[in-house]
Design a protein around this nucleic acid. Structure first.
Length: 129
RNA sequence: UAAACAGGUCCCCUUAUCGCGCUAACGAGUUAUGUUAUUGAGGAAAGUCCGGACACCAAAGUGCAGCAUAGCGGGUAACGCCCGUCUCUUCCGCCAUAGGUGGAAGAAGGACAAGUGCAACAGAAAGCAAGUACAGGUAAUGCUGUAGUGAAAUCAGGUAAACUCUAUGCGGUGAAACGUCAUGUAAAUCAGCGUUUAAGGGCUGCACGUCCAAGCUGAAGGGUAGGCGGUUAGAACUUUUGGGUAACCUAAAGUCUAGAUAAAUGAUAAGGAGGUCUCUUUGAGGCCUUACAGAAUCCGGCUUAUGACCUGCUUUAAGA
């Protein structure tokens, strides 16, 4: 499993994103928050992932871009543990809740925590047959 | 030496590993996917304040209103931008005067003999109500002159970043414009027939004017979500020739220079370079690479934010 993050794994559909906010479940590990949604219908990729930073907390577009890149990078390097251990397909949306500029180490640490919790929860809900 | 002002340059670099967007080639040959190569943020990309290009809107109508501009000349696709110049104002210097001259900075610099309004102090009075002293004059009277107040006195003057007038310009909406493909069920669209002019809607705010609108027949296909085009070769950039005080124009040669769309341009490591601090004065070590800030149809300006370096010049402070 390579640690690539191509275009088709990005969450783009407006319908899906609206659905995530309405029906998704969430895991929080400050300053990150993951909202996910089980897509039920089989898709080409296991996970479609999007990243967002609220404009309210970071007025500067440069800072928002920076945080989004950090989130994407940490997801890219750590998504392997998810891809190898889940069934079905999911939509992910990562939110950054903090109000200070983070360091990469901090982001990656919390990313790992979140992904581990997600795995635990999903395997409990849908035990592999 | 520091600060301010004006102009210019730059926005760390290289390599390796992992990764992202566009494009091209190869493989595949419809797509998907893979490999390789090229390339990938700014001087303000920002604010969206002006001016255009481009696109559409029912005849993009007419009048009024509204808005903008305001010496003169030039530049430009165009401008409210830029350049030159005159005039005025302020400050400084000199000559030495009630002015001249040099420098710097600034100017929303058309018209107050069309009308309306406003005006501190003084003054009887700065328009509608009056009048002091002296002299002249009359039937009589501020009727006339002088004095007095003031920058200005039944006569003008000042003021238009006061109304206003004059001249010139301005239709509206903005890439979520607009075109197109596939899907394809309407109350929505188009064409023809046709009705009432009552309400409503549209055409810029208002008025006029004008268009639409019930129903029937036919055609074509809408909305929502999505793909593609528009979409990056251009009023482009670089270097030189010639013209011009300058803004800028002209000619030649060369270059291709981001095109994302929940939105690419990143992460880690090493080295170099630069800055700064400490020890010390060959040198070593630590820290930082920082400011403002992220293209979204594209240009020309303006405004605002802001780091480093260089050049010029002026004033102030310090030193000699």
């Amino acid at each position: 499993m390579s640690s690539k993050f191509p275009k088709k794994e990005k969450l783009k559909s407006e319908i899906l994103i609206r659905g995530i906010f309405e029906e998704g479940k969430s895991i929080t590990s400050y300053p990150l928050k993951l909202i996910y949604l089980d897509l039920k219908a089989p898709a080409k990729v296991k996970v479609q992932c999007g990243v967002t930073v609220p404009k309210r907390n970071f007025k500067s577009a440069v800072k928002r871009n920076r945080i989004k890149r950090l989130l994407r990078e940490s997801y890219r390097l750590n998504k392997e543990q998810i891809f190898n251990n889940i069934e079905g397909s999911f939509a992910f949306l990562f939110l950054y809740l903090g109000k200070e500029m983070p360091q990469y180490e901090e982001v990656e640490k919390q990313m790992r925590v979140i992904l581990k919790q997600f795995l635990i929860r999903v395997t409990n809900e849908n035990p592999i047959k």
